[in-house]
Design a protein around this nucleic acid. Structure first.
Lengths: 192, 192
DNA sequence: GTCTATAGAACGATAGAC
DNA sequence: GTCTATCGTTCTATAGAC
């Protein structure tokens, strides 16, 4: 028998994902999740052990989605520089911030190893993925040999994460764009 | 008549500053502030209109302090590159994150123009200050003329703010250091 | 200026009927 | 599997004594 819509547990997870992105873990209450999902109190505690358990399911899915989105761009065509450029310039809802990175400012997420793990793994995967691309560019002569691939990769991810901070502080995506363009200018292959 | 210790309103502000840094605005309750400061319920509402008012006083002071700390390094001796390097490498309690930047992930701070203002102004001041230093370096020939000073400044601030994210995600300051070193390597004056 | 008492709402979770 | 009812606590704020 096919359901006309989505399952209750599915709606709970999706509503939690939205709220975690908007308000973080500390700022998201079970009550708000229930209101958004349309589920009742009992349903939530039937499908999940509690707020941390539901949040974990939501965070895991968000992390997985972020990874897939990044991979789609990073595995695209072009030189290493062009692929990094594509990643940095890809369309983003800048003022909403990074749904994964923002969780690092949540004390209850950082304090809980299970909740922090998917955040850590995702950002670590991204750095490792970018390290490989930078390394490829170094071997090709696109990037200077003196550069450390892992350090450049960290700088790329940090610029994005920090760009969100600047944009949200100023209420405009302009600061994010400026930081990204600055980094790309520094990274750009130049005649030497 | 001199007080033996600090005033109650002073202790309230300092306790709020600590809690905002550790737990953010949403995660900080008046009750927690009272417990940490040792003040009673009545004292807090005598000196401040409520949580937002007290938080505003705390945020303003933290912003002022951050600006003074940055200025102390940026106004130091050395070439523009050396001063930026000194800023990036200055000792930090990396895992605690930035007491100002972390507030951008707080929905209630971003939603309140009065609370967001000191955050915006501080990061904006920092970018402007760095823009001037980069511009000076460009004029001296330390940085390539093709570089946009404001964009480089934004990249510098973003790397720091994003470095905190990476460090907190991984539970280690190493990722912060890597990003900073990556940026410095890209920025370093090279023979051309 | 500080204290205790109290308020109404929201928090996170559980119980038990259906 | 979903619902309503309820629990004990915390949240933010106010009242009023001292």
């Amino acid at each position: 028998m096919y359901s006309a819509g989505v399952s209750t547990s599915e709606r709970l997870i999706e509503s939690t994902r939205e709220l975690l992105w908007e308000r973080g873990y500390v700022g998201t209450s079970p009550k708000a999740i229930l209101e958004r999902s349309g589920a009742g109190q009992g349903s939530m505690y039937h499908h999940f052990k509690g707020k941390p358990d539901l949040a974990l399911a939501a965070i895991r899915r968000t992390a997985e989605e972020m990874r897939a989105t990044a991979e789609a761009v990073l595995a695209g065509p072009g030189t290493p520089y062009e692929r990094i450029e594509a990643y940095l310039l890809r369309e983003r809802d800048v003022l909403r911030g990074c749904p994964v990175g923002r969780l690092t400012m949540d004390p209850d997420v950082i304090a809980d190893d299970a909740l922090r793990a998917p955040v850590d793994e995702t950002l670590d995967w991204l750095r490792t993925r970018l390290t490989g691309i930078v390394e490829e560019g170094r071997e090709r002569g696109e990037f200077a040999p003196v550069l450390d691939s892992a350090e450049i990769a960290a700088a790329v991810v940090a610029t994005v994460q920090g760009g969100y901070v600047l944009a949200r502080a100023s209420g405009s995506p302009a600061a994010f764009d400026a930081g990204v363009r600055g980094l790309l200018a520094l990274l750009a292959p130049r005649e030497r």
